[in-house]
Nucleic acid binder design. Structure first.
Lengths: 192, 192
DNA sequence: ATGTGCATGTAAATGGTTACATGATTGT
DNA sequence: ACAATCATGTAACCATTTACATGCACAT
């Protein structure tokens, strides 16, 4: 009964959507909100991409939808992960971690930073620092909220996944702030 | 004499290429090596993308090429940044830092980690940790090499940019390793 | 009446990867 | 002979963003 399509490989976006649907059923609209806000900020995608990917996942037999009433010109579709969908997520989790190419504009600025005089370079760093501090504060508030709920400490509970996600964001920005401090210090060494 | 095209905005890849060309003249081939190896590993791009982008930058008047002898069926082109090109890099450096969406597969795994029993989740973390340790060691060897050259401490010298870039990579992976330790600790708390 | 949120989709354009294509030089 | 490195480009495809399009319900 399982379609031949289910052997096809799932895209990273597909895995992200399946990962959310393993927690709860959702409409495409709900998924698009989860992907860009709140504790679940872990993979971003626009609705245009999400609707297309859901159709692909359904063709591959990894999700299934039921029509529900909607406030709009079209019907709404509530998506649920299938057994095959859940299995494909678990199989991916157990596979070797894939290489990641990050194209971070901050790194680009770092590479070109020598072109500016030290005082202007320091201003660039200040801008990066400010943005990182804001993000860090946001993630720390997410972590506090999860800690108060209490379920973030229980492996086997979805909140554990959310906590791990938020923690990664916190650690990232703490590292970035340390970087700002290091680079700024070296700039000052040459000035003073 | 400056073309109207020069007011167009430059892509992130374009800025990365200009950033390298501000250090030294280079052929497309040399740029493609710099973008994927060694100390300058800060923005990745394949040669197919680089040749196309160089043509665009030249049309916009930001780079200029001179033909040189080459070992192959075609002539080789040595690219140099123009005054306009250099100015556009400086202008970008002084602008507000842009938002960055990072789609990191490790974060995706973090989000889904609760689906695995604690012992298997620990194995996933071990795989991530191993990969991060390797990268960290590589970046640390880059930093040592830059320290020995001595120019990495001098703002105004290209090596300062390389050092800042490498430092960011080191801080990132140190943060990631801390994250692995944190998550693993929480997994063990529930087991023991 | 005006805007915001719910809810879905399509189309066009840009960014990035993979594959195809060519051919000289140098080392094994 | 064969592979690796130098050196350039095109074409097809996949991923992502931006823009276009529709229309109901509810609050100001």
């Amino acid at each position: 009964m399982v379609a031949a399509e289910s052997t096809q490989q799932v895209s990273a976006l597909g895995r992200a959507l399946l990962s959310v649907l393993c927690r709860r059923e959702a409409t495409g609209y709900e998924l698009s909100r989860v992907m860009s806000t709140s504790t679940d900020y872990f993979w971003s995608a626009r609705h245009s991409q999400i609707y297309a990917e859901l159709a692909r996942l359904e063709a591959a037999g990894l999700v299934r939808h039921t029509d529900i009433a909607a406030a709009g010109p079209r019907q709404s579709k509530r998506y649920a992960v299938t057994g095959d969908g859940r299995r494909s997520v678990l199989q991916w989790l157990r596979s070797e971690p894939e290489a990641h190419v990050d194209r971070d504009p901050v790194i680009l600025r770092a590479h070109a930073l020598w072109l500016l005089p030290p005082d202007e370079a320091a201003q660039v760093l200040a801008g990066i620092e400010r943005a990182s501090r804001e993000r860090l504060a946001l993630y720390q508030s997410f972590e506090r909220a999860l800690d108060e709920e209490g379920q973030g400490r229980v492996p086997g509970h979805p909140d554990f996944g959310s906590w791990a996600t938020v923690r990664a964001g916190i650690e990232f920005h703490q590292g970035r702030l340390r970087w700002c401090r290091d680079v700024r210090r070296r700039l000052q060494q040459s000035e003073g």
